[in-house]
Nucleic acid binder design. Structure first.
Lengths: 350, 350
DNA sequence: CTGTTAGCGCGTTCAT
DNA sequence: ATGAACGCGCTAACAG
């Protein structure tokens, strides 16, 4: 018992396939009589349109592909959640594809998307991967995220990582911290590098020596860095981690080592994943609105898909300025230099 | 400049489309000479097969759909991550569809999948939604998850929620707790109800009166429940929350109210989401291996898709027995009734 | 208002 | 070994 096709319905309703198609998705005038007969046939045959066939005919899949480097952690889940709500609002489906480490995998993933999606959202924090993606996509609309290529001339959304990092350091300075360390993200990752650059810039600006520990965005590396920092002779009194996961890892390591936060060391993360508000002390961080950004990305891509003109005219690189969210982990302990707790402050423009 | 089709390649290589198709995906003998010419043409034309057209022709999409009630929280992100790795390993794509509250939305979502996927994984914790899904899918293979229908005769994977709940309560009893409360999940949710049933059963077994506070699986409801419990005259000394998110919410509320954990109240959650290990005190919980279960689900579905015989013979309902993971939140404080910390114990079979 | 027909891009017999 | 032709299920011109 195979699924019924439009022809089965037509035969059963004693009409042509065109008429069936019309009652299904056309505003074209159709006699109420035939409309009823068709509906009746659809009902009894339990007919459901074959979207694959429809896609081939209309060359529209109502689906967008999302290429991700990874799927681990709350950052990505929030991102997908944001895209998902926007997608269902626009009547689109979402096909996710992750774990694309090297360039080769990314290109293969993109190729396999052809004829399957109407557009692509590509998250590629590695050099060239973004442009590569845009090229490989052929005529498919592509929206780049966090590609680091601010002036690529391609539709993209990027977070002001450098500016956010500067804000983080300035915040730590404002509560009297001077020995500020940084846990960096993985080398080669454009976002990690931009955050490192911002940190270095702000430290230099303040005339302070930088103190960088290597990490890889994962919680474990943050923990290792925390252990490292806790036992140093020149233990820092401030810490800016390149993302929240590492900040949390460091926080736990410091606490286990008996270092108090924020008294002994104030900690700032990046992303504002939900977890940041749950741990104790709650984590000061830079909120980039992950879910909202994901939704925004999908909306822009859909606009490009729906309107070919938008696809060519949209050459904008939208920049998301992260917002400082002060929580317990960096609450001022020195009354003379206090910062209002839990009051989000806008990040300065850069 | 539109994308090249197989015909363009054929013309450019001076061969028929059949030959092009052969070099692409057939082991059929093809002259090395023509093979080279075709490859050459593909290269210069930057030809990429149109998977939509291929799907229509082969009636195989190499894609599976995942229908979820929600996409919020680490539970679902872990689930998708597990499915994603299994999918890419099997050469399949993943199309996710969430936010399906009522039955109507679920049915609509399933309908829109026809002709787009080769099979469906449906997570529907509401009554009938599961069977509904299986019916609506027509001839599509469907794998049900956490449907609560143990004996539906349909391929499914369900967690032994009742058994896990019993284990949780028995654990609390084993460390000397007697006034054990439960934060329940949303009414109508089969998983929540099974966990509640297990709690009630274990309490009755121990001859203790139940104490249930209503929740909805979200962190906020756990927090509210925590506030409630903290101020009660008969404040409990043990707490079993229907999932980790609520357990964490309750934990924070209790701490803010000055109630110590585990000294004053021991807490146990359910799921073992990553967050459970990060908070302090770390959370004792029942691990169901969310990512692994997701991967397993996808593998079974793919088996059904690849082998029609499997699709009919596979009528098994795989049961996942959650494993107790003891962490700080329930570490025995009474030396005479200690439980080894951080040593996972197998859940008893039921 | 309705039916016929030609594609959409590709896989696949069936001849040659 | 290779090519011509048909079909997958549906939409959209074009006639009638």
């Amino acid at each position: 018992m195979k699924a019924a096709t439009i022809r089965d319905v037509a035969r059963h309703a004693q009409v042509s396939v065109a008429s069936v198609s019309r009652v299904l998705n056309s505003a074209d005038a159709v006699t109420e009589a035939t409309r009823l007969r068709v509906m009746q046939a659809i009902e009894t045959l339990r007919y459901v349109p074959h979207s694959g066939a429809r896609s081939l005919s209309t060359s529209k899949t109502q689906t967008v592909g999302v290429i991700l480097p990874d799927l681990y952690g709350e950052f990505f889940s929030e991102l997908i959640r944001g895209m998902d709500v926007a997608a269902r609002r626009a009547g689109y489906h979402l096909i996710v594809s992750s774990s694309h480490g090297d360039t080769e995998e990314v290109s293969s993933a993109i190729r396999s998307m052809r004829g399957r999606v109407d557009g692509l959202i590509v998250l590629s924090p590695h050099i060239d991967a973004a442009n590569l993606a845009a090229n490989l996509a052929g005529s498919l609309p592509v929206l780049l995220m966090n590609s680091g290529a601010v002036d690529s001339g391609r539709p993209s959304i990027i977070v002001d990582n450098r500016g956010g990092a500067v804000t983080a350091v300035e915040h730590l300075l404002s509560i009297g911290r001077r020995r500020i360390a940084h846990i960096a993200g993985p080398a080669g990752n454009l976002e990690a590098e931009a955050r490192l650059a911002g940190y270095l810039e702000a430290m230099a600006q303040a005339g302070l020596p930088p103190m960088v520990v290597q990490g890889d965005f994962m919680q474990a590396s943050g923990h290792a860095a925390g252990v490292n920092l806790a036992t140093r002779a020149d233990r820092p009194d401030g810490l800016f981690a390149a993302n929240d996961m590492m900040a949390v890892g460091a926080l736990l390591a410091l606490q286990d080592a008996g270092v108090r936060c924020p008294e002994d060391i104030a900690v700032v993360g990046f992303d504002d994943i939900p977890l940041a508000a749950f741990i104790r002390p709650s984590l000061t961080t830079l909120r980039s609105g992950v879910a909202e950004t994901g939704a925004r990305a999908l909306e822009r891509l859909v606009a490009m898909v729906d309107d070919p003109r938008a696809a060519v005219s949209d050459t904008a690189c939208e920049i998301v300025r992260p917002e400082l969210v002060v929580r317990q982990s960096s609450t001022a302990t020195n009354p003379s230099q206090s910062t209002p707790a839990r009051t989000p402050a806008s990040a300065p423009a850069h």
